[in-house]
């Protein structure tokens, strides 16, 4: 028997609630960069970084650089697991134009400290997947102390809730000199808020629809445990009901055979857009999934696992889910 349930926050905070998080980002960012020459920022590991002046030379992991790029903060150099040996960044790179930006690490050696030193950084920025004080994405724990000696590390969370993380990136960007009140960013934020309102609206109207987030291959599939993913947590917060496959927190996935796919019945299926996994068309032709109610009804949509935690990235991701819910009907 399938021991799964549906997760949705009991207290839907509403557009005001989510918007408020982002707004809080702006105010605290303003506090963080006072006129005084000293610069300070508290990151998601609760480490307060204090520098004599606002950092100018920024060495960033691709996953942190992509949202900051959207906020108008350009990296001095890039590193991390998402830099490929040929200099491309993959989907995690978002809108970054890698042309002319040096790399100081790649998938083979995520962070080459000497190359970092050569860039003379004021600040290193990355993301973090856990509360573990030594867990900085793309930075080898064995060299963590030496890396910190080169420049302080600011880490923004990749777990929790995507909208909160986006607010945190906005705060960091503001602290680094981005003008969040620029025409472009104000418009981007407005678009994001529109998409939030749109998803909340449709989710409350179609509150009985359920969704499944999955990455499928032809010989098996993995079902996302929504509480482990920042974007899925946010969608649940906005009122989308997502199937929880009944695995312990931190497991990220439940592995299943395609034979039992239809037992995880939902009204909508979101399928990972990563290369090497099944596309919606292929899923519709895969036995087991073919019989899944959502697939049978053609209610299969793409899930971008490499969403960018910026206003623009959030707008794209949330709008995608909102459209999916709008176009879907109750089928179970």
């Amino acid at each position: 028997m399938v021991q799964s349930q549906f997760g949705r926050r009991r207290f839907v905070t509403g557009a005001v609630g989510v918007g408020a998080l982002v707004t809080r980002g702006i105010t605290s960012a303003q506090e963080a960069s006072p006129d005084a020459s000293e610069w300070s920022f508290t990151d998601d590991k609760d480490v307060t970084i204090t520098l004599p002046a606002r950092p100018e030379r920024l060495v960033m992991d691709v996953n942190a650089a992509a949202p900051l790029w959207d906020f108008g903060i350009k990296p001095t150099a890039l590193f991390g697991w998402n830099v490929y040996a040929d200099g491309t960044l993959g989907a995690a790179g978002g809108n970054i134009d890698p042309e002319g930006i040096p790399t100081v690490g790649n998938v083979n050696e995520p962070l080459n400290l000497e190359q970092v030193i050569a860039q003379d950084p004021d600040l290193i920025v990355t993301i973090t997947w856990s509360d573990d004080p030594s867990d900085y994405w793309s930075i080898d724990t064995a060299l963590l102390e030496q890396t910190k000696a080169v420049a302080p590390i600011a880490a923004i969370s990749a777990t929790g809730r995507a909208d909160v993380n986006t607010g945190r990136f906005a705060e960091l960007a503001a602290a680094l000199g981005a003008d969040l009140e620029s025409e472009e960013l104000v418009a981007a934020r407005a678009e994001m808020e529109t998409s939030i309102a749109r998803l909340q609206g449709v989710a409350s109207v179609k509150s009985d629809l359920t969704a499944l987030f999955v990455s499928a291959g032809e010989d098996g599939a993995v079902i996302a445990n929504p509480t482990d993913w920042a974007d899925l947590n946010m969608y649940m917060e906005l009122g989308v009901s997502i199937l929880e496959p009944g695995v312990e927190s931190g497991a990220y996935w439940l592995e299943i055979s395609n034979e039992v796919a239809a037992e995880y019945a939902t009204d909508i299926v979101f399928i990972s857009a990563r290369p090497g996994t099944l596309t919606p068309e292929e899923l519709a032709g895969t036995p087991g999934w073919e019989q899944h109610p959502a697939v049978a009804a053609g209610q299969v949509f793409l899930w971008n696992q490499d969403f960018i935690q910026s206003y623009q990235g959030m707008t794209t991701a949330i709008t995608g889910v909102a459209e999916a819910v709008e176009r879907s009907a109750k089928v179970i």
Binding site: N82, Y84, A85, D86, T88, G90, A91, N106, V107, N108, G217, E218, D219, G220, S257, N258, R274, P275, G276, T277, T286
Partner: peptide, 22 residues
Amino acid sequence: LLLSEQTLDLVRFWSVGSVAGR
């Protein structure tokens, strides 16, 4: 594999023999 994002996921599939889903 180190050169691009496309290859890793596709290739690890070829490291294990399976008759499922064929």
